[in-house]
């Protein structure tokens, strides 16, 4: 009787109860994201602690917290346009999340060419974002911002900015690499042969997470 219950090899491997009816890979991804949330939380809380210990923005005080409109007012080929460039970056990243959703949907339909198309857009969005960030960094460095100095005000601003946007940018870059790897695997038909596109779903979770974190990074440095 027991033997009958377990002749299906799949049951044999996956045990009796799967309370969330989710595969182990997705559970793992979820727990990873929770833990990564704590890493970012650690950094953002440090940001909060240091920032609140500095004098509030005050044009007369060169050591006060800088005004984001002053710091971020340029883009490639234009000046005096506060926050325009970062708006573009944010928009690109959010769009890439939308294309990611489309890729996941196509994966559910087992539509290889659809997945390829939307993954390509997602990768492109990621690349544009990382590229823009590289431009912004080098621009700010030219203007004299370093991890230990900041012409616009409190030096901790520079340190925190490079640290946190850098750590986020690192996440985006890793995402682009993973997405490209998934793109190639899709192209080679690996997931078709496997019978499901769960890998794209897992990468989708990661990608949305990185997107969500950007919202907080954006709030911390560009808005307040």
């Amino acid at each position: 009787m027991e033997a009958v219950a377990t002749t299906n090899a799949k049951d044999l491997w996956s045990g009796g109860d799967s309370p969330f009816k989710v595969s182990y890979g997705k559970i793992m991804m979820w727990y990873f994201l929770i833990s990564d949330t704590f890493t970012f939380a650690g950094l953002l809380i440090s940001y909060g602690a240091i920032r609140t210990s500095q004098p509030k923005h005050d044009a007369a005080n060169p050591l006060s917290w800088p005004d984001p409109n002053e710091v971020f007012n340029a883009g490639p080929g234009f000046h005096n346009a506060p926050l325009i460039f970062v708006t573009f970056m944010t928009f690109t990243l959010i769009l890439s999340s939308v294309t990611m959703v489309r890729a996941v949907q196509e994966g559910h339909q087992m539509n290889r060419s659809g997945v390829l198309k939307w993954m390509a857009f997602t990768i492109l969005g990621g690349l544009v974002f990382v590229g823009s960030q590289a431009w912004e960094w080098s621009h700010l460095i030219e203007e004299g911002m370093t991890p230990h100095g900041n012409p616009f005000g409190a030096s901790s601003f520079g340190a925190l900015f490079f640290l946190i946007t850098g750590f986020h940018g690192f996440h985006v870059s890793v995402g682009v690499l993973l997405n490209s790897w998934a793109f190639i695997s899709t192209y080679r038909g690996v997931f078709d042969r496997r019978g499901h596109y769960e890998m794209i779903e897992k990468l989708g979770l990661y990608w949305h997470f990185v997107d969500l974190v950007w919202v907080y990074v954006f709030l911390a440095f560009y808005l307040f």
Partner: peptide, 25 residues
């Protein structure tokens, strides 16, 4: 572990920055 080690990671990154990149966290 999954919830607390990442925070040590943040702490360690900040300390590495302070030591090697001149930050003052």
């Amino acid at each position: 572990g999954v919830l607390s080690f990442p925070v040590l990671l943040s702490a360690a990154i900040l300390l590495l920055f302070d030591r090697n990149l001149g930050t003052s966290f």
